[in-house]
Amino acid sequence: MLRIEPQHCPIPEVLEDNRWGWTEYYIGIRGEPLLVNPRIRTCVAFLGRRHDGEERIVATGFFLSLKCGDLYFPYLVTAAHVIERTRSFDYSDDGIVYLYLNAKTGARFKTIRSEIKHWYFHPTNPAVDVAVLPFKMLPELDHTVLESDPPLEVVANPRRWLIDVGTDVFITGLFLRHFGRERNIPIVRTGTIAALPEEPVTFVKDDGSEQKIKAYLIETHSVGGLSGSPVFANPMVPAISESNIQLQARHIWIGLVSAHWDFDPDQPEQENINSGIAIVSPRESVMEVLDHLDLHEMRQKVITNRIKNKAPKFDDAGEPLAQKTRAPKPEDRISVPIPTRGQFEGDLAKAVRKRNKK
Rank of each mutant, 00 (worst) to 15 (best):
D262W: 01
K104F: 07
I171E: 05
V128S: 02
L293W: 10
V132L: 04
V132N: 06
V286G: 04
L34M: 15
D332Q: 05
N234W: 15
R250A: 15
S229E: 02
V154Y: 02
R189G: 08
P235S: 02
M287R: 01
L256V: 09
K308Q: 10
T325A: 12
G166L: 00
R353C: 15
R19M: 14
T111H: 06
V14P: 12
D207R: 01
G21K: 10
S275G: 14
E319N: 10
V237E: 04
N37D: 15
Y25W: 11
Y216D: 00
G346H: 13
K308C: 00
H8P: 00
T304K: 08
A249I: 03
G95Q: 01
F62S: 05
P33D: 07
V223D: 03
I245V: 15
G255N: 05
T325Q: 12
L66H: 08
D168W: 00
I218N: 00
F109T: 08
V130I: 13
A317T: 10
G69K: 04
E210C: 09
L99C: 14
G191L: 11
N102E: 05
L34K: 12
Q323R: 08
T105M: 00
Q211M: 01
G166R: 01
E5Q: 04
A131V: 05
D164H: 04
N244Y: 06
A327P: 09
T202Q: 14
A327E: 11
G180D: 13
F89N: 04
A156K: 15
V302T: 12
L35A: 13
L76D: 11
L99D: 03
D291E: 11
I57N: 09
K308E: 03
P312Y: 02
V286L: 09
S227D: 07
E297L: 14
K104D: 01
V14G: 14
P339C: 11
W253R: 14
N234Q: 07
V352K: 11
L295E: 02
A259N: 11
A195W: 00
K110Y: 09
A349Q: 07
H143A: 15
R181V: 07
I218V: 10
I277V: 06
L348N: 03
E13K: 02
N274I: 03
G318C: 07
K354T: 11
Q343Y: 04
N272D: 06
F179D: 13
R306D: 07
V352P: 00
E54A: 08
F46S: 13
R108Q: 11
I240K: 10
L348V: 14
G31L: 09
G255F: 01
W119P: 01
A156M: 15
G225N: 09
K357Y: 09
E5T: 06
W119L: 09
D294Q: 06
P33I: 09
R3L: 15
G21T: 14
L76P: 00
L247D: 01
H8M: 11
V188C: 07
I96W: 00
S275P: 03
G48S: 09
P282I: 10
M287Q: 08
E140G: 03
K354Q: 13
N157Q: 14
F203Q: 10
F46A: 14
L141Q: 12
D168G: 08
E115Q: 01
F73T: 06
V155I: 15
V132S: 05
G208T: 06
D262V: 08
K104W: 04
R87S: 00
A194G: 05
L176T: 06
R41V: 15
Q300L: 12
T167N: 06
